[in-house]
């Protein structure tokens, strides 16, 4: 793990931002440790949902054996946000999997987000009160920045789980359910104009 640069997160109901580290070059152990740290809180959250008779969020599971191999490849990069010694969010991107579909960038390279997740204590669904806000925003910002560095103009794309589509719809274009995706998830893409809107704070 290496600190790429300083970042920050927001504390709910307060104006102040707290300092956080944007990290990259995560090792296998770093990912495992993050998930072990997240496990108990996620467990609590899921139990609470179950007891309240609420449906589980759309779900998936890491295949740890496969993931370890990917970390060695140039094509994949892992990012995280660390605050208070804990991983607040994780992201894995691919520089070769993304190909533009939006008009104006058809066929152009796009940074593809293979995985993005916040620590369970930051989710309203799972925690009684989220600890930090803006983890998703910071990781999406990191993806956009990395996309720029790679010469992709800030363009990013991803497939979203159903409980997250509302968040992505605010900043990216919804291109619908994608039968090309192993789980048929909804595909989102950000073009350069949306990048500017996202970063500069204008209303889309």
């Amino acid at each position: 793990m290496r600190v790429r640069r300083k970042s920050s997160l927001k504390v709910p109901a307060r104006e102040e931002l707290v300092e956080a580290d944007l990290v990259d070059e995560l090792s296998n152990d770093d990912l495992i440790n993050a998930h072990l740290d997240w496990g108990p809180a996620r467990l609590e959250g899921l139990k609470r949902l179950r007891e309240a008779g609420r449906p589980w969020p759309e779900h998936w599971h890491w295949d740890w054996s496969k993931k370890a191999d990917l970390l060695d490849l140039l094509a994949y990069h892992c990012f995280g946000i660390v605050h208070g010694g804990r991983m607040q969010g994780l992201m894995m991107v691919s520089t070769i999997a993304g190909k533009g579909r939006l008009p104006g960038q058809v066929g152009k390279p796009v940074l593809y987000i293979e995985y993005l997740e916040s620590a369970p204590w930051n989710y309203r669904e799972l925690a009684e009160k989220p600890e930090f806000l803006g983890v998703g925003v910071r990781l999406l910002e990191a993806a956009v920045e990395f996309s720029g560095e790679e010469g992709f103009g800030g363009r990013v794309s991803l497939h979203s789980l159903s409980q997250s589509t509302e968040f992505y719809r605010k900043h990216m274009t919804d291109l619908g359910l994608d039968s090309g995706h192993p789980q048929g998830l909804r595909y989102f893409e950000m073009n350069m104009e949306q990048v500017r809107t996202f970063v500069e704070g204008r209303k889309p």
Binding site: W60, W62, K66, A97, Y115, G134, G136, Q163, Y168
Partner: peptide, 20 residues
């Protein structure tokens, strides 16, 4: 942006054979 996000779930899962 953080206020807009407001603790909603942000999970994305991709094409790489990482997940089942």
């Amino acid at each position: 942006r953080a206020e807009e996000e407001n603790g909603s779930m942000i999970s994305a899962i991709g094409l790489a054979p990482l997940f089942a």
